[in-house]
């Protein structure tokens, strides 16, 4: 499939698209991909460039939206510097990383486990799949509200049943949302509830696309299923894992609705993650400059994290191909 082969074996096309089209057309392997990508790149650029430049501009100034009468002063890198010196920033960063790592880790293994179970041809499995997917279908705000309701005093299912059981066993009531450590884990739990279906779906896809031959070979060798899993399934699943984990990490890092509805960063500041901090700064205190600087820092962190992750996985993926 070299270029020369293409051009010589497809004369009708070259004839019908003489002129501009043949210059930018499929035969030009240097230019054509850009033609195909152009609409995507143009839209992303058009929508993305102004917000990005605006953020850079605002972050280098001193703008408080609720005080439009204040003069705009250029402050250079002051906003970033102030953030880095702000203990609240480091606290939020630590909480965010902890939340992201825990949530993605648990979601990944649970999702993988479920995906493996669903490989079996069981009666009623198609039906069950819809049940499993429900949390993901809910709007994030609604999911968060449902869980706030689950922990409502009195009528909340968790409070009433789980709390009732622990009370009966003599452990007393569990402070699901009132103890700093437990509240944080409760949020991780709800995030896991909401997004494991996503992992499950992405990994199911990956599993199903693994060819059969390697397993047959392993069977002949008499390899244990544990070994098969680690030496065949996991490596071949890499592309699916990559997308699933990168997307989920990006989203977990930005989790907002869940936290703001259920605890709003409390109790104390136990669940104040970056995005809670950001939203408070930007949309409650209207400190646009600080918020812009913060969001740019957040974006840098996500970029670095994804980049490293993709690098690690990519190199192996391409070998597998």
């Amino acid at each position: 499939m070299s270029i020369s082969e293409r051009t010589t074996t497809a004369p009708p096309m070259a004839l019908s698209h003489r002129g501009i089209l043949s210059r930018f057309g499929p035969s030009n392997r240097a230019v054509f991909p850009w033609v195909l990508m152009a609409p995507t790149l143009i839209i992303l650029f058009a929508i993305g460039i102004y917000p990005f430049l605006y953020s850079l501009y605002i972050a280098s100034h001193n703008v408080i939206l609720s005080k439009p009468y204040l003069p705009r002063i250029f402050v250079g890198l002051y906003q970033y510097q102030a953030l880095i010196q702000d203990p609240e920033f480091w606290h939020a960063l630590r909480k965010t990383l902890l939340f992201t790592v825990q949530a993605v880790f648990i979601e990944f293994w649970l999702g993988l486990g479920l995906a493996l179970l669903f490989q079996r041809q069981l009666a009623g499995i198609a039906f069950m799949r819809v049940f499993i997917l429900i949390p993901m279908i809910l709007p994030p705000l609604v999911a968060a509200l449902i869980w706030r309701y689950m922990f409502y005093p009195g009528a909340g299912l968790m409070t009433y049943y789980v709390g009732g059981i622990t009370k009966a066993l003599g452990f007393g009531e569990i402070p699901f949302l009132s103890d700093p450590t437990i509240a944080f884990q409760t949020l991780v739990f709800v995030d896991v509830w909401e997004w494991t279906p996503f992992m499950f779906l992405m990994l199911s896809a990956g599993l199903a696309s693994i060819p059969r031959q390697p397993y047959e070979a392993a069977e002949i060798d008499g390899a244990s299923s544990w070994r098969v899993f680690w030496t065949i399934t996991m490596p071949l699943l890499r592309p699916a894992i990559l997308i699933a984990v990168v997307i989920r990490t990006m989203d977990a890092f930005r989790t907002y609705e869940l936290i703001v509805i259920m605890t709003r960063g409390g109790p104390g500041n136990a669940t104040t993650t970056m995005n809670v901090f950001l939203t408070k700064t930007g949309l409650e205190f209207f400190d646009a400059s600080k918020a812009a600087a913060l969001s740019l820092i957040m974006m840098m962190i996500i970029i670095v994290m994804s980049f490293v992750f993709i690098r690690v996985f990519r190199s192996k993926t391409e070998v597998a191909e």
Partner: peptide, 20 residues
């Protein structure tokens, strides 16, 4: 290019509300 496309998904919505 492929990575740049992905970065477009990374900005927190709060940060871009006003410019948008």
């Amino acid at each position: 290019v492929s990575f740049w496309v992905l970065t477009n998904r990374m900005m927190p919505p709060v940060a871009v509300l006003i410019p948008i």
